[in-house]
Computed example of a mutant assay.
Amino acid sequence: MSTRIPLTAAGAERLRAELEDLTRVKRPAVIAAIAEAREHGDLKENAEYHAAREQQGFIEGRIKQLEADLSHAEIIDPGKLNPGGKVVFGATVVLADVETDEEKTYQVVGDLEADIKQNRISISSPLARAMIGKEAGDTVVLDAPGGQREFELVEVRYQA
């Protein structure tokens, strides 16, 4: 039985774009680099050749991984869900730290598309698990390594 991997439509599009770049740009470039390195003669001591072959291995591995992930993906459009104001997969939330009043905005996404630099947190992360099912105005308690942290759920939005 294969497991379905939840993805937002935007996350699936980012993965497809990466796959497209790898297959249409990076794969041909590394093949050309290998061909050029072969022309330099003895392959045993040809560092350019070995580096290009290693890069080719990484590219091919990533292509296979992306293809597998996309084939098992279940695209969930948060804009079409009707969660009644509760935090669910795909929701964008605004959290306020109770101690500092600092506000942060996060989108709850699948494991494959999580990127904290882009404020996308995984559905399986402790923070997302603490927020699931809560509504704006609720308090979210997170058990962090430094102790419990409290947040107020300021806003919940759903966008495609």
Rank of each mutant, 00 (worst) to 15 (best):
V108W: 09
E54G: 11
R62S: 02
H50C: 08
A136Q: 02
A51V: 03
A96H: 10
V30Q: 00
E74S: 11
K134D: 07
I63Y: 11
E18I: 08
A29H: 03
A136F: 06
F58D: 01
D101S: 14
D111Y: 11
E13V: 02
G61Y: 04
G137S: 02
L112E: 12
Q65H: 06
A52D: 14
V88D: 06
V154W: 08
E45V: 02
A51L: 05
R129C: 13
G90F: 10
S124H: 13
E152F: 01
E20R: 07
A68C: 09
L66N: 06
F151C: 08
D143G: 04
I116W: 15
I31D: 08
A73E: 04
A114P: 05
A114E: 10
I76Q: 01
A47H: 06
T3K: 11
L66F: 03
E48H: 13
R38C: 07
R120V: 01
R53H: 01
G85V: 08
R38Q: 15
V98M: 04
R16L: 00
V94C: 05
R14W: 06
Q148Y: 14
R27V: 00
R53W: 11
I59N: 05
E13A: 08
G79N: 11
N46S: 03
E13G: 04
Q107N: 04
K104R: 13
V87N: 02
L112Y: 09
E150G: 14
R157K: 10
R38F: 09
A12P: 02
G110W: 00
A68H: 06
E60S: 00
T3H: 15
G57K: 05
G90Y: 10
A136R: 07
N46T: 07
H50E: 13
Q148W: 04
N82L: 14
Q107F: 05
I76R: 04
R16T: 00
F89N: 07
Q55S: 03
E150D: 13
S71A: 14
D143M: 09
R16M: 03
R53T: 06
G84S: 14
E39K: 11
T3D: 15
S71F: 12
V156E: 00
R53F: 00
P28W: 01
I59E: 00
D115Q: 07
A52G: 12
R129V: 15
E102V: 11
E18P: 00
E152T: 06
P126A: 14
I63E: 02
L142H: 12
V156Q: 03
I34M: 04
D69Q: 07
R149G: 13
E99A: 13
A114R: 05
I123S: 13
A128R: 02
T8C: 08
G61V: 03
I132C: 14
V94P: 11
A10G: 07
T92R: 10
F58I: 09
G61P: 09
I123F: 11
E99D: 14
R24N: 12
V108E: 05
K104D: 15
A35P: 01
R129M: 13
V25A: 04
L112V: 04
Q148C: 09
K86C: 10
A17C: 00
K86I: 10
A17R: 06
R53E: 11
I5W: 14
E48N: 10
L43I: 10
N82G: 00
G110V: 03
R149Q: 15
V140W: 05
V109W: 15
E103F: 11
K80S: 01
G41Q: 06
L95N: 02
